[in-house]
């Protein structure tokens, strides 16, 4: 943690390094994780039949661990394959038709959310050394309110012809569960960063350290 201050001066994207094979492996496996999480049984709780799953947890975690670029790629790949017909959306659904259903807004929001929360996560990692779980949680909470829920509400309103107010109310059901999932995602992300210190942090540091060495 000693050289966080040097890292602050050097932004992560110095010259946009191309992804290597390990990055591809991470993108693929996190896409698979989102798919697996979507298939854990969930219930359609609100009146419009949008199911609750561990998916949002996996999406947030992907962003928090992989950062904006790879996080977007992982969740984007999942969405793309689901839309192409692979039965990997929640409860085994698939296909373009989902864009006409009540979940459309959420599905579109997921890759964007992974990107936004990933961007916030790199800031957290560069600026803080303590209480990262709290900061991760706040990043995820803000992202889910601003990106996931607002797009989700728009999706419900557009596709079910409900008013925005009704859509807002039906979306509210997700908030308590989402808070729990965001807490879990933050705690797990901190643990993953501890188990794999170079997964995102060292990438920041290394790009900072290189000019000094050369």
């Amino acid at each position: 943690m000693s050289n966080t201050d040097t890292a602050v001066k050097n932004p992560i994207s110095t010259g946009r390094r191309r992804w290597n094979a390990t990055d591809l492996g991470l993108i693929a496996v996190f896409a698979a994780l989102v798919a697996a999480a979507a298939l854990v049984p969930g219930l359609a709780v609100n009146g419009f039949g949008v199911p609750i799953t561990f998916q949002t947890l996996a999406v947030m975690l992907t962003g928090l661990v992989l950062g904006p670029g790879r996080g977007f790629a992982a969740v984007g790949l999942y969405t793309l394959l689901g839309l192409a017909g692979l039965p990997i959306f929640s409860q085994g659904r698939s296909g373009l038709g989902i864009l006409a259903g009540p979940s459309a807004g959420y599905i579109i929001a997921f890759p964007i959310a992974a990107c936004v929360v990933g961007w916030l996560a790199t800031i957290v990692i560069r600026r803080t050394t303590k209480a990262r779980a709290l900061w991760f949680f706040l990043s995820a909470a803000v992202t889910s309110a601003v990106v996931v829920h607002s797009l989700g509400i728009v999706g419900i309103a557009l596709n079910t012809k409900a008013t925005l107010g009704q859509a807002f109310l039906s979306d509210l059901v997700f908030y308590p569960g989402d808070m729990v999932k965001n807490i879990l995602a933050a705690v797990i992300a901190v643990a993953l960063h501890r188990a794999f210190p170079d997964i995102l942090v060292r990438r920041v540091r290394r790009s900072a350290a290189q000019p000094a060495k050369a």
């Binding site: 290597n20 094979a21 390990t22 492996g25 991470l26 693929a28 496996v29 996190f30 698979a32 993953l192």
Partner: peptide
């Protein structure tokens, strides 16, 4: 899963 991803990548 992360360990698996990195092994696979490697």
């Amino acid at each position: 899963s992360v360990a698996f991803a990195r092994q696979t990548g490697e």
